[in-house]
Amino acid sequence: MNAAQLTVDADLTAAAHGAVDEVIASLPVSLAPARLPRVELIALSGSSEDWPTRLAVVAREGARGVTVVAPTRPADAGPDRIPVVVDYEYASNPAVPGAARAASKIGAALLEIRATAVREVTERALLLDLFALARRLGGSPVASSRVVLESDAFLAIRGRLADGRPLLVNVSRTSARTPGAEARMLGADAGLTASFPAPSAARPARVVISDFDGARTLPTLYETSHRATWRRLRDLVHAGGTATDLADLAADDAALPPHD
């Protein structure tokens, strides 16, 4: 074990949903499975109701960084001295930052995000993921939203980013296609389309920008959202930095449409 290597532990659900073993195997110099008592990085399942409490505990016990996998609710507060990052299926895709840089030059009038999901997916986790994707791609958090259409198989949300731009989020539940999310930003003379496959197979996102010069595909990145999340956490830990993920998560949660 080298000095820079960080040890990782995960609860069972986080390990499964966040593919933690695969991530460790693909970052063998940076990460290693934890052997008590040395546990530096922790993965918590965000689908657990008590994950904020457990976060406080692991921080108190000396964790150097935490990944929260697919949260379904925000934390009221988080540790302020260690980085806590959120592992989203789509918003954590490594292609998102490049797409966001390109999108910032488009001046898009409308941001659309459409997801294909299987019926079993937890809706709240998916919506928080899609709102995070909207925030990261649009460079502005979602300020408000409302459900305009809803059925067992379809959900349409009309929202607005904090900078005033309109947002459209759709979720279609079908087994016809593999799960994934697509984003489109349409500007006055340019546009961006991006497809983000679910991370199970590490299929790369495809990001295409079209402007007056033609259309350009951004370089493909064959890395899962999970691995990109852990690289980010690793870098934050080594740099002594923190993250705004929990505050962003709380803001996204507050912007979700009212529900019964």
Binding site: A109, L110, E112, L149, E150, S151, F154, A156, L168, N170, L186, G187, A188, D189, A190, G191, S210, D211, F212
Partner: peptide, 11 residues
Amino acid sequence: PIELHATMSEN
């Protein structure tokens, strides 16, 4: 549910 969307721009 049905969504109808159209934009016409200089793109």
